[in-house]
Design a protein around this nucleic acid. Structure first.
Lengths: 149, 149
DNA sequence: AGGCGATGGTGAGATGATCTAACCAATTAG
DNA sequence: CTAATTGGTTAGATCATCTCACCATCGCCT
């Protein structure tokens, strides 16, 4: 298998090429969110911020969407609740369930996060050229469609 | 900042687009390496396998190359040494230093890892088309050059 | 209507990968 | 020759994640 032209020596494999900039973005994101006044947010919390719906989401739903286990989400939500970013409200439609919802503070943090991401992507766009960045995004979306049909 | 056209709703940001397939590759890599008979290798170990030179590398060098601290490398190397993948030999040129080198077992595991990566990349190439995958790699290399000049 | 399997959420405890701080041994530079 | 630097290690902490066990509620079935 793998009868394809060998990569030039020293060219990192796709795993590294993908992971390293993802890591970079995480770090910058955290930096800028901290600068915006939310310095207690850690990278794991982004799973919640990214997936929680405005009307509130169940723990189970968050776990599915973020592809982690329920106890992991509970741990993150406990954390965020203690820090005032989210609140748990009873789910009106099901006595067992609770809805996790962003507080005002949480909404502000999410906005800061979104702004930071947009900023970082803009910097990358300025460096590569907007069309090339768009092409990169397109290819990554295609890859994602293949991996998670 | 960020006066660029908004992404369509639901389009994941670049962080996720990059991280998710990197994660995917890691998991597949580990699976296949395990199938090849090296089932005790964990993902963190890849840092050592990927960066160690055939002639042997110092702990310090590995830490720099893998972008982690020295104690982290010591921890990984202890692990790999106990499992028989690497050995420590004294550095002939410096009494303080030791060289970490792959054993026969380690070389075999590295080969299995390389084969697995090549296989996965070939699958991606078959799905996206080789030229498009090459384009993706090219753009990622460009991004890397921007981020780590 | 009552019981019981499925579902939503939690707690306890373990594990893995990382870090910082402190340290010893050997080297190199004044 | 001493002092600062460098290579490696140990100890201990932290964080993010998991599995297993559990309780509460729901909704179905007889």
């Amino acid at each position: 298998m793998a009868e394809r032209p060998l990569r030039p020596i020293g060219t990192p494999n796709l795993g590294f090429l993908l992971r390293d900039p993802a890591f970079f973005m995480n770090e910058r994101l955290l930096e800028r969110v901290a600068e915006a006044g939310f310095s207690d947010i850690r990278i794991a919390h982004t799973a919640v911020f990214h997936h929680v719906r405005d009307a509130g989401s169940r723990i189970t739903e968050l776990a599915e969407r973020a592809q982690v286990t329920k106890p992991t989400v509970v741990y993150l939500v406990n954390d965020l609740e203690a820090m005032g970013y989210v609140e748990r409200v009873p789910d009106p439609g099901d006595g067992r369930a609770k809805l996790v919802r962003l507080t005002e503070h949480g909404l502000a943090a999410r906005e800061a996060g979104r702004a930071a991401v947009a900023e970082i992507e803009a910097e990358w766009g300025a460096a590569l050229g907007e069309e090339r960045l768009a092409k990169l995004r397109e290819l990554l979306l295609e890859l994602r469609a293949f991996l998670w049909p």
